[in-house]
Design a protein around this nucleic acid. Structure first.
Length: 729
DNA sequence: AGCACGCCGACT
DNA sequence: GTCGGCGTGCTC
C-alpha cells in the first residue's frame, strides 16, 4: 500500500494521530500521504468508519510494520489550533474524566467556520440624496441599516422588496461593494474615556493592569460589594490587554448576558463586543467562531462554553460573578468553567480575573494563601453602606395560620410603601405551593417515575414538576383515594406570597418576577423597566431578581425563607445561602437612601445568618473554612461524586456495590456510600451515589479514571463521575 | 456524530 | 413472511 510513497524519504513510515470531534477516548493513527506537510493542530480530513470527517492533528509517530492504516486525505488551509489549545483540550479531558473527542467537539462544533466567509454584494448609503426619493426608497435609507447590508436584509428591515434597493443604486442613493457575508467585528477602542472612577477604583484598575503587563500567568480575585464598580475596574485590565494587541474573554453567567450588559461594553470600548451563548443561531455562531479563530475578534462576552473558543492570542479572561453555580456544566462533558479558565490561563501564560461581590470560599482561600492577588473594592460610590440586615425568628414571630409573612416584615413593607418607596420579597420557590397533599389519605403528588413533588401553579391552573418539566391540569380529586376537593397546597411559592402581600396591602401594586411569569426576554425587560420607574410597589421574586439590577427606589428587602439551603447533606449549602442572601440584601438602598433587609428564619443562631446580620464576612469565612478543614472538604481536600443509574433498583444497587469493591487501594482516600441519591428516582431511572474524598496531595482525577476503567457496565446501566461536584442531587 | 447491526411489532 | 422502529456499539 505504501510502496508508491517510498520515493519520498521524508514521509516514509510517517503516521499522524488524528483526533475527531466524536465520542472517542483518544486520537487515531493514520498514514500521512507523501508530500503532505503537517503540523500539530492542523485541521485535516480523514476517513473514519464509512465517513469522511474533519479532525485535528494531535501528534506524530512511525508506522508499525504489518499494520494497515487508512490515510489522511487532505489538510485544510487554515490557521491550526494553537499548542496551548491542544494542551487545554487534553487537560480538560483528563481532569474531568471526559473523552478527548467529546472535548474537541466543544471546540469545533461547526467546521464550516473554517472556510473564509463568502463574498457577496453589499450596499451602503452614498451620502448623496437620490433622484426621485419615493416613500419606499426613503424607508430603505432610514431603516435598512446597519450598513453595509445585503439587499435582502436592507429590504426586509425597511419592509420593501429588493427591487427598491437595486433601484436606489441606480438613483445614486446607495453604493454597491463586495464584502464578506459575515462582517468582522468592529475593533474595540481601549482608550475611549469610560465612566469617572473613584480613587479606590483607579488604584484597583491600575493593579489589575500591572498584572497584565507582567505578560505571565497570574490570578486576581477582584472582590467588591454590589455596586462597588467591579465592571468598570476590570474594564481597565481589558483595556490594557487590548492595547497589547491581545484578545479578551469575559465570562458571565448565562442569564446575565443581556443587551443592557453588552451596552456597558459598547460605552467603554466604542463597539459592541461579540457575544457567545448556547442558544445562538448557526450563522451568528459561525461568525464569532471564525473571527475569534482568526484573531480578528478582540473582545468576547460569553457564557461558560465561550471558554472553548479557539483564541490564538488570548491575553485575559475575566470570570464575572465567579461564585455563580451556573459555571458548572452538569451534562455531557462535566466541567467548571471558573476552574478551567484558570487552567487555560496557566497553559497559555496570561492573566485571569475572578470577580465577585461574594467570592467562593475556594477563591478566598487561594487569596489568603497568596496564590491569587486579592484586590478589594470596599466602597460603594454614591451609596454609603450595605443595607442593615436583621433576622426575624419565626419561632417568636409566628405568621398567621396559612400565611408566610411575619409581623415585622409586614410592618417594614408598610413603612416603605407609605413613603412611596419599593419593597422586594425574595423567595426561591416558583409557583404557588411547593407541595400538593391529599387531606384524606395523605398522598403527596409526585412527578411520574420521579422522586420530585409537583408544584401547584395557580396562575396557569396546573401542577408542575420543576425537575422534569412534567405538568398536568390541577386534578379535582386525589389520584390515589379519589376523594373530591381533598387536595391542598402546602408551603409558600412566589404566587402565594404575592397573593398574601396583595391581601395585606390592597392598594399596593404587587407583581411577580420568576422564570414562569417572565418567559421571554422582552417581557422580563419590561417588568424590570416598570420596577425601575417605580410602577411597582412590592415585587415578589425568585433567584432572577438577584442578578445585577438597579432599582433606585427599592429600600426594603424581605427574605421569606432564610432557612432554604441550610439543611441537607450539601457541604456548600451554608456558603450558597450566605452568598444568595448577601446578593439579595444588596438590592436594597442603592441610591442615596440606605436600605434595610429582614431575613425570616427558624435558625437565627446559624452562623451563616449571624455573620450575615453582623455584616461580618470574615467571621463567616473563618468559621466555614475551619469546618471544611476539619472535615477535609474543599479547599483543603478533594471531592468527587459517582452516580449510578439504570432501570432496575436491585441492579443499580449491585452495580454500585461492585464498583465499590473495585476501588483501587490508595492512601489518603475515603469513600462514603453508596447510598440512595436525594432524588432516588428520576424519569423512571433508579439512582445511587457515592462520594470519594481525597487528601489535597492525591491526583483524584487519575485515581477515578483508574477505578472507572476496571468496571464494565451493561449498556442500560450508567456510571457518571463528577470531579468537584457542585450539585448534590 | 453517523452508520450498521440486531432484535421485536404490524403490514402487503 | 418482510419492512422498519430505535437501542447499542464502533470508528485507526
Amino acid at each position: 500500500m505504501s510502496s508508491i510513497a517510498c520515493y519520498h524519504a521524508t514521509n516514509v513510515n510517517q503516521t499522524a494521530q488524528i483526533l475527531f470531534p466524536v465520542n472517542v477516548p483518544t486520537a487515531f493513527d493514520y498514514a500521512v500521504p507523501a508530500g503532505l506537510d503537517l503540523a500539530r493542530g492542523d485541521f485535516v480530513f480523514a476517513p473514519i468508519g464509512k465517513q469522511m470527517k474533519l479532525g485535528v492533528v494531535w501528534g506524530f509517530g512511525t508506522a508499525e510494520p504489518g499494520r494497515e492504516l487508512k490515510s489522511i486525505v487532505d489538510r485544510k488551509a487554515t490557521r491550526p489550533l494553537s499548542p496551548d489549545m491542544l494542551d487545554f483540550i487534553d487537560w480538560t479531558a483528563r481532569y474531568n474524566g471526559a473523552s478527548l473527542g467529546n472535548v474537541l467537539r466543544m471546540v469545533i462544533r461547526n467546521y464550516k467556520a473554517l472556510d473564509p466567509s463568502a463574498i457577496v454584494t453589499l450596499y451602503r448609503p452614498s451620502g448623496n440624496s437620490p433622484k426621485n426619493l419615493t416613500p419606499s426608497r426613503a424607508a430603505v435609507l432610514r431603516e435598512g441599516g446597519p450598513w453595509p447590508a445585503r439587499a435582502s436584509e436592507a429590504a426586509a428591515r425597511a419592509g420593501v422588496s429588493t427591487g427598491v434597493v437595486k433601484g436606489l443604486v441606480k438613483a445614486g442613493g446607495l453604493v454597491a461593494e463586495s464584502g464578506p457575508v459575515d462582517p468582522p467585528f468592529p475593533e474595540p477602542d481601549a482608550d475611549l474615556l469610560g465612566r469617572e472612577l473613584t480613587i479606590g477604583q483607579k488604584e484597583a484598575g491600575e493593579d489589575l493592569a500591572a498584572q497584565i503587563r507582567t505578560g505571565r500567568f497570574n490570578v486576581s480575585l477582584l472582590d467588591g460589594v454590589t455596586g462597588s464598580g467591579k465592571t468598570e475596574v476590570y474594564f481597565e485590565a481589558v483595556a490594557e490587554a487590548l492595547r497589547r494587541g491581545k484578545q479578551c474573554l469575559i465570562l458571565v453567567p448565562e442569564i446575565a448576558l443581556t443587551q443592557a450588559g453588552l451596552r456597558r461594553f459598547a460605552e467603554r470600548f466604542g463597539a459592541e463586543p461579540a457575544s457567545w451563548h448556547s442558544q445562538m443561531g448557526e450563522a451568528a455562531r459561525r461568525r464569532v467562531w471564525r473571527e475569534v479563530a482568526q484573531g480578528r475578534c478582540k473582545l468576547v462576552v460569553g457564557a461558560r462554553s465561550a471558554l472553548y473558543l479557539p483564541f490564538p492570542k488570548l491575553g485575559l479572561i475575566v470570570v464575572d460573578e465567579e461564585h455563580d453555580t451556573s459555571y458548572k456544566q452538569e451534562e455531557g462533558v462535566i466541567y467548571n468553567a471558573r476552574d478551567m479558565a484558570v487552567v487555560r490561563a496557566h497553559l497559555s501564560g496570561h492573566s485571569v480575573i475572578l470577580a465577585s461581590a461574594t467570592p467562593s470560599l475556594e477563591s478566598l482561600h487561594n487569596a489568603r494563601n497568596g496564590k491569587f492577588a486579592h484586590i478589594i473594592l470596599p466602597e460603594r460610590p454614591g451609596a454609603a453602606v450595605l443595607p442593615e440586615i436583621g433576622l426575624v425568628d419565626l419561632k417568636e414571630h409566628v405568621p398567621e395560620k396559612g400565611k408566610f409573612l411575619s409581623q415585622p416584615l409586614l410592618d417594614a413593607i408598610d413603612v416603605v410603601t407609605a413613603r412611596g418607596e419599593q419593597a422586594l420579597l425574595y423567595l426561591n420557590r416558583r409557583g404557588y405551593a411547593p407541595l400538593i397533599i391529599c387531606r384524606s389519605c395523605g398522598e403527596k403528588l409526585k412527578s411520574p417515575d420521579t422522586d420530585s413533588w409537583l408544584v401547584q401553579h395557580k396562575r396557569t391552573g396546573r401542577a408542575m414538576c420543576h425537575l422534569t418539566g412534567f405538568s398536568m391540569p390541577m386534578p379535582r380529586e386525589c389520584p390515589k383515594c379519589h376523594t373530591e376537593d381533598s387536595l391542598t397546597s402546602v408551603g409558600p411559592g412566589v404566587e402565594r406570597v404575592a397573593e398574601e402581600a396583595q391581601e395585606a396591602f390592597p392598594n399596593a401594586r404587587v407583581e411577580i418576577l420568576s422564570s414562569d411569569t417572565a418567559g421571554n426576554p422582552a417581557e422580563l425587560a419590561e417588568r424590570m423597566r416598570r420596577m425601575e420607574q417605580g410602577e411597582i410597589d412590592i415585587l415578589v421574586g425568585t433567584q432572577m431578581v438577584v442578578k445585577g439590577h438597579n432599582f433606585p427606589k427599592l429600600t426594603f428587602v424581605g427574605v421569606v425563607d432564610g432557612d432554604l439551603g441550610l439543611a441537607g447533606g450539601d457541604p456548600r449549602a451554608g456558603e450558597r445561602t450566605y452568598q444568595t442572601l448577601v446578593q439579595v440584601a444588596g438590592r436594597a438602598g442603592r441610591a442615596d437612601k440606605p436600605g434595610h433587609a429582614l431575613i425570616q428564619t427558624h435558625q437565627p443562631e446559624h452562623e451563616a445568618l449571624v455573620a450575615l446580620a453582623a455584616g461580618d464576612r470574615e467571621m463567616f469565612i473563618g468559621v466555614e473554612l475551619a469546618m471544611r478543614e476539619m472535615l477535609g472538604l474543599p479547599p483543603y481536600g478533594k471531592l468527587a461524586a459517582v452516580i449510578f443509574w439504570g432501570p432496575e433498583a436491585a441492579k443499580v444497587d449491585a452495580l454500585a456495590k461492585k464498583f465499590l469493591a473495585a476501588a483501587p487501594r490508595a492512601d489518603g482516600i475515603e469513600i462514603l456510600g453508596p447510598s440512595e441519591a436525594p432524588i432516588g428516582r428520576l424519569r423512571g431511572m433508579f439512582r445511587r451515589r457515592l462520594f470519594v474524598q481525597a487528601e489535597a496531595s492525591v491526583n483524584l482525577s487519575k485515581y477515578m479514571a483508574t477505578w472507572r476503567s476496571k468496571i464494565r457496565t451493561a449498556s442500560k446501566y450508567k456510571i457518571q463521575i463528577d470531579i468537584d461536584p457542585q450539585s448534590f442531587m
